[in-house]
Design a protein around this nucleic acid. Structure first.
Length: 328
DNA sequence: AAACCGGGGCC
DNA sequence: GGCCCAGGTTT
C-alpha cells in the first residue's frame, strides 16, 4: 500500500539513555536525521518548553492532576489563570474535598463542561478517603478515579511521578500521524493499533519516557499544530512522512463533523449554569426562564443539570414555584 | 461506535 | 461561520 514510513520506531535505537543532559545542547540544528525521533524532539523541547506553572519544580502531583482535568478540551491559555487561582484556594485534595460544591462550580467559572469540576471534587474525596490524601501513582488506581481516563492517568503518571507511560493526546496523535504515517491529521477515533504504535516509540526507562511525553505534546501544541503547522521550525521536518508526501490534505475531512453549538441543549445548560453561578441566592423558576425562551428545551436542559447533580431544586411551599441553585 | 457534554478565539 | 482545543462517560 504505502512505502516504508520515513520514520519508524526502529530508527530510534535508544542509544545511550543516560547520556544527554551534560554537554552540547544541540548547538544549531535540532533536525539531524541520523538521530532518532525521540532524541530530536526532546532536544527541541529543552529549548522551547513553555514555562507553565504545573511544570514548575514546586508542583505537586495533585496540582498536575488538576491541570490535566482542566486541560481536557480547554486550551492552555484559558486554563493557566484558573489553575493558579484554584490551587491558591485549594492546594490539596483535602482542601477541595471539604469545599462547598457551589464554590467549586463558581471557581470553575467558564472553563466549560462543568461536570469536570464535579468529578474533580469527587476525585479529591476518593483520594482522601482511599489513598490517604496522596495521588496514587499506579495505572489502575488512577483510572478508577472519577474523571480520569486513559490519557489523564498516563499524563499524571508521567508528569507528576516521572514514570513511563504512553501519553497519547490529540497533540501526540497528530505528530505521529504526520511524521510517521504521512497523514495530515489522525483518524477521528483512536485505534488500538495507534496506541500500540505510540507505545513502541516510548523509551524504556522512566526518565526518558517522561521527557518524550512532555516533548511530543509540546511539539504538537507549538509547532505541529492542526491548522498552520510551522514545519520550518520542526526538528522532524527532514524525515517527516507528511512533508515528504507534499503535505497532502486530510483523508478524513469528509467524515469530521463539528459539534453544533447555537441552539443546542449544551448552550442552554451553559446559560442556566451562568445564571446560577452569578446568583448568591436561590433563583425562582420564573427568573430562570429568562435563560432561554423555548420552554421544552429549557426544561430538558434543567432536568439534565439536576440529573447530573450540577443544580439542586428547592420547593419551600407546594403552591409556589420551585427555585434552583448550585449544590452544597 | 456514536452521542453527549462548554466556551472562546482564530482564520 | 467553521474549526480546534493536554477527553471522559454513557448508551
Amino acid at each position: 500500500m504505502h512505502a516504508a514510513p520515513a520514520l519508524s520506531p526502529t530508527s530510534d535505537a535508544p542509544g545511550a539513555p543516560g547520556s544527554s543532559p551534560d554537554g552540547t545542547a544541540a548547538g544549531t540544528a535540532a533536525d539531524v536525521p541520523e538521530r532518532g525521533v525521540v532524541d530530536r524532539v526532546v532536544s527541541w523541547y529543552d529549548e522551547h518548553a513553555r514555562d507553565l506553572p504545573w511544570r514548575a519544580p514546586d508542583r505537586t502531583p495533585w496540582g498536575v492532576l488538576v491541570s490535566e482535568v482542566m486541560l481536557q478540551q480547554t486550551p492552555v491559555v484559558r486554563v493557566e489563570p484558573a489553575w493558579r487561582a484554584w490551587m491558591g484556594r485549594w492546594p490539596t485534595p483535602a482542601d477541595l474535598a471539604a469545599a462547598p460544591t457551589a464554590d467549586v462550580l463558581r471557581a470553575w467559572d467558564r472553563l466549560g463542561y462543568p461536570r469536570r469540576a464535579l468529578r474533580l471534587q469527587q476525585c479529591a474525596q476518593v483520594v482522601v478517603d482511599r489513598h490517604g490524601g496522596q495521588v496514587p501513582d499506579d495505572e489502575a488506581a488512577l483510572l478508577a478515579l472519577p474523571g480520569i481516563g486513559s490519557y489523564t492517568a498516563a499524563a499524571v503518571r508521567s508528569f507528576a511521578f516521572g514514570r513511563r507511560a504512553v501519553v497519547l493526546d490529540t497533540n501526540v496523535r497528530r505528530v505521529l500521524a504526520r511524521a510517521v504515517d504521512g497523514h495530515a491529521l489522525p483518524a477521528p477515533a483512536q485505534t488500538r493499533a495507534e496506541v500500540e504504535r505510540a507505545a513502541a516509540l516510548v523509551p524504556d526507562d522512566d526518565a526518558s519516557a517522561a521527557r518524550w511525553a512532555q516533548a511530543s505534546m509540546e511539539l504538537g501544541a507549538l509547532v505541529c499544530t492542526a491548522r498552520a503547522p510551522r514545519c520550518d521550525e520542526c526538528p522532524l521536518v527532514s524525515s517527516c512522512a507528511w512533508v515528504a508526501a507534499g503535505r497532502p490534505a486530510d483523508l478524513h475531512a469528509h467524515r469530521r463533523r463539528t459539534q453544533a453549538w447555537a441552539g443546542t441543549d449544551r448552550q442552554v445548560r451553559g446559560r442556566i449554569m451562568a445564571l446560577l453561578r452569578e446568583s448568591p441566592v436561590h433563583v425562582p423558576e420564573p427568573v430562570l426562564d429568562e435563560a432561554w425562551s423555548a420552554t421544552p428545551q429549557r426544561a430538558r436542559a434543567l432536568a439534565g443539570l439536576l440529573a447530573d447533580g450540577l443544580v439542586v431544586e428547592h420547593q419551600p411551599h407546594p403552591d409556589e414555584p420551585p427555585s434552583y441553585a448550585l449544590p452544597g
